[in-house]
Design a protein around this nucleic acid. Sequence first.
DNA 1: TTGAAAGCGCTAACAT
DNA 2: ATGTTAGCGCTTTCAA
Lengths: 345, 345
Amino acid sequence: MDGKHRTTIGDVATEAGVSISTVSRVINDNYPVSSKTRVKVEKAIKKLKFNPNMVARSLIAKKTNTIGIVVPGITNMFFTMVVKGIENACRLRNYTILLSDSEGDGHREVECVQNLISRQVDGIVIADPVTENMIRLKYDEIAQHTALVFINGYAADSNMNYVLNDESEGALKALEYLIGLGHKDIRLIRGNRSYSYDIKENVYRNTMAEHKLAIGKQSIINVGDGNSVETVDNASKVVYSILKGSVKPTAFFACNDLMAVGALNGCKKAGVVVPDDISIIGFDGIMISEISEPKLTTVDQNMFELGNRSALMLIDIIENNAANGQKIVLKTRLKLRDSCSPPKC
Amino acid sequence: MDGKHRTTIGDVATEAGVSISTVSRVINDNYPVSSKTRVKVEKAIKKLKFNPNMVARSLIAKKTNTIGIVVPGITNMFFTMVVKGIENACRLRNYTILLSDSEGDGHREVECVQNLISRQVDGIVIADPVTENMIRLKYDEIAQHTALVFINGYAADSNMNYVLNDESEGALKALEYLIGLGHKDIRLIRGNRSYSYDIKENVYRNTMAEHKLAIGKQSIINVGDGNSVETVDNASKVVYSILKGSVKPTAFFACNDLMAVGALNGCKKAGVVVPDDISIIGFDGIMISEISEPKLTTVDQNMFELGNRSALMLIDIIENNAANGQKIVLKTRLKLRDSCSPPKC
DNA sequence: TTGAAAGCGCTAACAT
DNA sequence: ATGTTAGCGCTTTCAA
C-alpha cells in the first residue's frame, strides 16, 4: 500500500496530452486556458483522482496555510475549548492546525515551538499560564520571524501579541456579587503559582479591604495543582474540614471551576446545602460548571472566543503582515446560575 | 516581520565556506565529513540559527512525519482523551499531529480526510461512531494509498484497520454486576443512533432475557443527542420524572457518563439518594465520572489507550509497510466507585 | 572527503 | 492560449 505512486501533476499532463503548466493553470484558474483544454485536463484530473501536493506548493509559496497550537494540556477543558475556538477560525479561513501539548513543561514548550517552526507553520498560538516560562523562553527572538499570539499569558512585553481575558475585572465582579449578596466571610480557593491565580488573589485582597472585610490566616486556601482531577478532591477535602470547624465562611470564591466543584462536593459530604447554607462561585465556565448539581454560578471566560480571536488575530498578522504589539482584552461575564444566594443570618 | 528571509542550508554553506551538500551531510550525519569541516559548519549553523526546512525535506522524502486525526468533536471529553493518547504516541515516535474536527458531519469528515491527504500526512486516525458514515464514505478506496486506522467504528470491513473497545463485553460486565447486586428493574439510558448505543441495547435485551428479567415499554430511555451538555439535563429530567412515577427502578445503566451524571442529578432533585436508594452505572470513564458526588461506578473505555494504540498501529503500518486488516480489541474495565449498591428491598 | 548536478511536485516568469 | 524553463530548500547520486 505504500510503494504506490501518488499521482502528480505530471501524470495528469501526460494523460491530458498537455504541458504541466497548463494543468497548473486549470487547477489554480489564474491564467487563461481554452475551454477545450480545460475540459481535457479536468477529465484527466478526475480520472486519475489527482490531488495537488500541498507540500510542493508550500515550498514554493513559502506558506503552508498551517498554524501551530501549543497548549499546556489538551485534556484540560479550558484549553480544549480554546482549541475548538481556534479550530473554528481556522476552518473558516482555510488553515489547518498542527497541535502540540507541552504538558506544562517549559522545556517541552520550546521544543514544540521549534518543531512547529521547522515545519514552516505560518504562525503559532501559544497558551501558557506560567509566568516564568513566558519570560524565560525568549519569544521576542522567535517573534522576529514567526507570527506569534499568546493566550491569557503574562502580557508585560508590549511588543508581543496577546488575547487576554480581563481576569481582574472578572474576579472583581464575582467578589462584588458575593459581597452585594451580603457575604462577609468569603474564602478564596486558589492553586499553585500561576499568573491567573495571582491576579485573583490580588483582587481578592484589595476588594475585601475596600469593603472592610477581614482576611485571616484561613482565608486563602491553596489546593496545590489547580488543573488535575485531584484538584477536585483536594478542594473537596479542604472545604469539608473547614465546614467541620468552628468558624464557617458563608461563601467560597474559587479560582476555577474544578476547585468550585470540589467545594460543592465538600459541602455535600459535610451535609451543607448549596446555595442555602453556603454560596460557591467558580471561574472559567467549563462544561462541568453547567452539569453540576446545583449548576455553578461562575465567571465565564469564554474560552472559545479566546481561541477564536487569537486565531483570527494570528491570521490577520500572517496575511496582512500586520505589526506586532496587538492586544485584545476580552470581558468576562458573570453567569448567574444556582450556587449562590444571600447568607442565612 | 514577514519579509524576513529564513536562513537556508545555502546561507549556512556560504557562511562556512563549503558546499550545500557538505552542510547536508553534517546535519544528517550520514556521510563522512572531516572534523575540521564539521566544526566550521556547526559554527555557521549556530551563528545563523539554522533550522532545516521540513517542507523541503518532506518533498524529497515523500514522508512528512505527520499524521492526521479526524474526530467528530474535540470538546467531547471522550475524544479529547483519545487525542491525548495519540499525541503521546506521536511525540515518542517523532510524529506531529494535524487535527481536524468533523463535528459529526459525514460530509465534513470527507473534506477533512481529503485535506489531510493533500497535505501528505503519512496516515490518518479516524474516529467516527456513526455507522452510516463509515459505510458510505468509501474509505476502502482511500486506504489503497494512505494508511488509515479507525477507532471504535463500525468494523465490518475486515480489510481496514481498527482499534476497538469490546463494548459488548463492557455492557455485559455492567449489567451482570448490577444483577449480581440483586437489581431486577434495571433501566437503560441511551442516545440517538450510534453504533455504540445499539451494541449496548442488544446486550441489555439479551442479558435481561437470560436472567428472566422483564423489559417493559419504559425500560429503554432515549435522551436524544448523547454527547452534548444538554444530554445531562435531558437525562436528569427523564430520570426525575420516572422517580416521581409509581413504578421505580432500582438501577440505571447509562450508555455514557454524561447520561449517568444526568441520572445522578435527577436523583438528587427527586430527593433520592445514590447509591442507597438507587444505583447508577455509567460507561466511558471520562473525567466527570471521577468528580461527581458520589463518584460514578462506570465501565472504563480507556480512551487514552484507544488513541495510543491506534497511533502506534498507524505508525507501524507507515514505517513497516504493514498490511491492512489489523484489528485490536481492547478490554474494558469495570471501575467500582460509589454509585452502586444492592437494592433496598 | 568534498562539490556539482539532478530532482522531489509544483508555480510563475518568460517565450512563442 | 500554451509550452519551456528556472527555481522553492533540501537530499542524494555521481565525479573528482
